[in-house]
Amino acid sequence: MSSAHPRSRTAVIYPDCDGKPIAENTLQFEWIVTIKGNLDLLFRDRPDVFIAGDLLWYPVEGSPKICTAPDAMVAFGRPKGHRPSYKQWEEGGVAPQVVFEVLSHRNRPPEMRAKLAFYERHGVQEYLIYDPQTDGLRGYQRINDELVEIPDMRDWTSPLLGIRFDCSESPMRILYPDGSPFLTLDEIAAQRDAFARERDAAERKRIAAERELNAAEQERNAAERKCIAAERELNAAERKRNTAEHERNTAIQERDQIARELESEREQAARMAAKLREMGIDI
């Protein structure tokens, strides 16, 4: 009697790394970091936009060999968060809508044609390629089932991202929807340092102004105290003047009273003398 054993399934492994470097040179790496970092800033308030750099994307479940790692990718409708890789069937079937590739001297036309075919086949809506060595920019947009090259990338605005590519200068500039440029980490640090210096200068001005205000307040208080003291002195002088005026008036009244009394006495003496004379008495 024989027994049948069920065939065990082998778990499919989806590697988190393809063994390739993120970048071949510092210039390429700086552009990758700048694009990915500024996209993070652009959509920092959107919890439903996932952005990654050099993350392996597996579009087909059960086929780990079908994968690629865009230098930067944007998936609308997917939550932010860390992932070891982007497995499309675990992301509600949502393919990254926008991908960026930053070229190095090692990229060859066959490789780039294969990437274009991959992105076209698996649902990318916008595919942007930048070569920092030559300052060359190419772009593709999905029309029906094809990624069609955009004929003129000068001053082109991404319908999905809202960012604009200004090719009037070299190197090319990527601009936010408000017109401000994507900045490198060094430029962001320099801007932060400039803001810090301006903030410190403003704080020093505030402290100096506060000191001046306090000094002015002290001077005002001192002047007010002097004014109060002067007013008191004036009131005291006024009281002295009133007292002196009163004393003068009293002295005048007393003098007039004495004068009246003397006049009355003289009149009485004259009347007395007149009577005596009438009586024949000489005095």
Rank of each mutant, 00 (worst) to 15 (best):
T250W: 07
I35D: 01
E90N: 12
A222R: 15
P151W: 06
W89Q: 11
R108Y: 07
T26Q: 15
P181T: 07
R241M: 05
R9L: 13
I22T: 14
R154L: 03
G123H: 02
S158Y: 09
A189W: 13
I252D: 03
E219C: 00
Y127S: 02
D131E: 03
A259D: 07
P59S: 09
L103E: 03
A190C: 10
S2I: 06
H82I: 12
H246S: 06
I258E: 04
Q253L: 04
S168D: 11
G136Q: 15
Q257E: 05
L128K: 03
S8A: 13
T243Y: 07
N38V: 07
L42M: 07
E90T: 07
P59K: 05
R248I: 09
F43L: 08
R164V: 06
I281H: 08
V60P: 08
V49F: 03
I150E: 02
I13R: 10
N214F: 02
A23Q: 10
N242I: 05
E254T: 04
A117C: 00
E247A: 06
A223Q: 14
A196C: 08
Q133I: 15
N221S: 11
R225D: 11
R199K: 14
I207S: 01
E169G: 11
A194H: 13
L147E: 04
P171C: 07
D45V: 00
A251C: 01
A215I: 02
F195D: 15
D282W: 09
I150A: 08
R46N: 10
D155A: 14
I188F: 08
H105N: 10
P64T: 13
V33I: 14
H246Y: 12
D40C: 10
R173D: 00
L185N: 09
L41A: 14
L234W: 13
R192T: 14
A229L: 08
M172R: 06
